[in-house]
Design a protein around this nucleic acid. Structure first.
Length: 281
DNA sequence: ACTCAGGGTCGAC
DNA sequence: GTCGACCCTGAG
């Protein structure tokens, strides 16, 4: 429908932010992506030196534009962040060479299922799983093959483990059912999880089968908007050990705790730049 | 055709 | 704390 200017092209790197392993519903190629945020289909594109966003399902107004900026993480002061690390060679180079990489603020429920799905998988497979699930159990909201809302917990629960296995979730299927059951029974209050201290939030998420510390950290970073978390996977581990000289004997959980204490509220962003940098180099 | 590895977690010892 | 098992699929 209407297409509006949202920011300068220097403000956000679309490929790194939308299709770099934190969100799994954007399809496109470097300068143009189509995807779903909650119940709207969007096209986000770079044209000349501007970023535009088009809503294919309803009109964009001031309120929804403001929400889109929140989703894209545009409220985070990237310039200040960048400047703060200018003395730290490895991190500063990562920030400069991936300029505009931002952490998205996704729907926490979708992030929960996405990162349970991410275990020993890869970005393409996660995307295929999540989008197929949406096309089977979500609501159709557009003409594109991936224009579906992300399914509710109830819909996923009703689908059942065997159907999830047919979609290709494999051994993660019972985990997803457990998450769906707990969410359906209102055992997970995402709004409350945004505000409580890290350890309590972590322990609550760990109650769900298939959520360990790494997945919980991702849910907190990408779904709950928490920046005081440092997810450590095999890629981030490489950066921490090989470049920042953390000890190789430490487990990923230990590395996460150490980095979290060091980087405090910059943790999620530092982690994101290390992850993306290590994965694409 | 065949092997490898990908944003880990679980349960048993 | 350590270790094998766990599903699937694109890439080489």
């Amino acid at each position: 429908m209407n297409k509006v200017y949202i920011c300068d092209s220097d403000d956000i790197n679309l490929e790194a932010s939308l299709d770099g392993g934190q969100a799994f519903r954007w399809w496109g190629d470097k300068e143009k992506y189509r995807g779903v945020i909650r119940d709207n289909v969007y096209i986000i594109s770079k044209e000349n030196s501007s970023i535009y966003i088009e809503n294919l399902t309803s009109e964009i107004n001031n309120k929804s534009l403001s929400e889109l900026k929140v989703y894209l993480g545009l409220n985070f002061n990237l310039k200040k962040f960048t400047n703060h690390y200018k003395e730290q060679n490895y991190i500063y180079k990562l920030i400069l060479s991936n300029q505009g990489l931002r952490i998205l603020h996704q729907d926490p429920w979708e992030a929960t299922i996405s990162f349970i799905t991410s275990s020993v998988s890869n970005v393409l497979k996660i995307k295929n799983n999540i989008n197929k699930l949406s096309s089977i159990a979500g609501n159709k909201i557009g003409e594109g093959m991936n224009d579906y809302t992300f399914p509710t917990a109830k819909k996923i629960f009703e689908l059942g483990e065997s159907e999830l296995r047919k979609i290709g979730f494999g051994f993660r299927s019972p985990y997803i059912i457990d998450a769906a059951y707990k969410n359906m029974k209102n055992q997970i209050d995402f709004q409350k999880l945004r505000e409580i201290e890290y350890e309590k939030c972590l322990n609550k998420l760990l109650e769900v089968k298939g959520i360990g510390k790494k997945v919980a950290d991702c849910i907190m970073a990408y779904g709950l908007g928490r920046r005081d978390v440092f997810p450590v996977d095999r890629w981030v581990r490489r950066g921490l050990v090989n470049r920042l000289k953390y000890k190789n004997i430490y487990t990923n959980e230990k590395l996460s705790d150490l980095a979290r204490i060091k980087f405090k509220n910059d943790s999620a962003y530092i982690q994101q730049y290390i992850f993306y940098g290590e994965k694409t180099s």
